[in-house]
């Protein structure tokens, strides 16, 4: 269907290149696997099963709709984690492009993020399937979800650009980032409701934009969750600010970084 839509878009080599690279990246991730795309689904589902067991059986946490609660948080975090970890190596992996054609490096990031976004969309479809099976309603702010996704996209793109510029010069960054991702996994609100942060650790909400993204994701995707508009505005402003900084660094240092690739 997407290809049918694309046929009607005016011919544009730049757009086509971004799309083709994204498509191939997405395909390559699952190409050699017997189960193919199913793995994109098995990964979050297996994590949900493990954490559901740990939290509800071992720790006896009693929360309503805990499965969709976990699911919605995990898919946003997994996409962020995958985008930033693989994105850190993007310049090295795409060296053949950088050294052979004239193009805007932004295209590399757009194709990478498009590929990650395709995986996220696939998981979101699985999420909606799950809530239908469980008989749970989506959130009352569902129509605001594209804005939350946009916020996620801007923040993730900015982080990917900065990491990818640092990685060729300071290779240790990938180890540091692995630790950040591990810590972020436990402090970004995948397992805890908004009230926990708002009453106990409000400062963390302002320090870590992902907390706000997850709170508002649930306001859109799961019934009974509140949408925090001031927090959304704050996160969006911070994400745009970070993206502006990332693009500035990219423009200023890309040719210097190219010497290290």
């Amino acid at each position: 269907m997407l290809n049918a839509v694309l046929k009607h878009i005016p011919e544009n080599n730049r757009f086509e290149r971004i799309w083709k690279l994204a498509q191939v990246d997405f395909k390559k991730r699952y190409y050699n696997d017997k189960l193919g795309l199913i793995w994109a689904l098995i990964n979050p589902l297996s994590q949900i099963a493990i954490y559901y067991f740990v939290f509800t059986v071992v720790l006896e946490k009693d929360e309503e709709n805990f499965v969709p609660f976990l699911f919605s948080g995990l898919i946003m975090w997994i996409a962020f984690s995958e985008a930033t970890k693989t994105g850190a190596n993007i310049l090295t992996n795409k060296k053949y492009l950088i050294e052979n054609i004239q193009f805007n490096w932004i295209d590399l990031y757009l194709s990478h993020m498009t590929s990650i976004f395709m995986g996220l969309m696939f998981n979101l479809v699985a999420y909606f399937g799950t809530v239908i099976i469980l008989g749970v309603s989506v959130g009352s702010h569902f129509l605001l979800f594209p804005l939350v996704l946009l916020n996620w996209f801007i923040l993730t793109t900015a982080v990917v650009i900065i990491l990818s510029l640092l990685n060729p010069i300071f290779e240790d960054i990938k180890h540091i980032w692995a630790i950040v991702i591990l810590v972020g996994f436990w402090v970004s609100g995948i397992f805890f409701a908004g009230s926990f942060y708002l009453t106990e650790y409000e400062w963390m909400i302002h320090l870590n934009p992902f907390v706000g993204i997850l709170l508002n994701t649930r306001a859109c995707l799961l019934e009974g969750n509140e949408f925090y508009l001031p927090l959304f505005i704050e996160n969006m402003a911070a994400s745009i600010g970070l993206l502006v900084l990332a693009i500035f660094l990219l423009k200023k240092y890309s040719k210097k970084v190219a010497e290290f690739i």
Binding site: E11, L21, I101
Partner: peptide, 12 residues
């Protein structure tokens, strides 16, 4: 298609 797109050719 990938190689062609990289080399500046449109899909058409």
């Amino acid at each position: 298609y990938v190689n062609g797109a990289i080399l500046g050719m449109s899909f058409k």
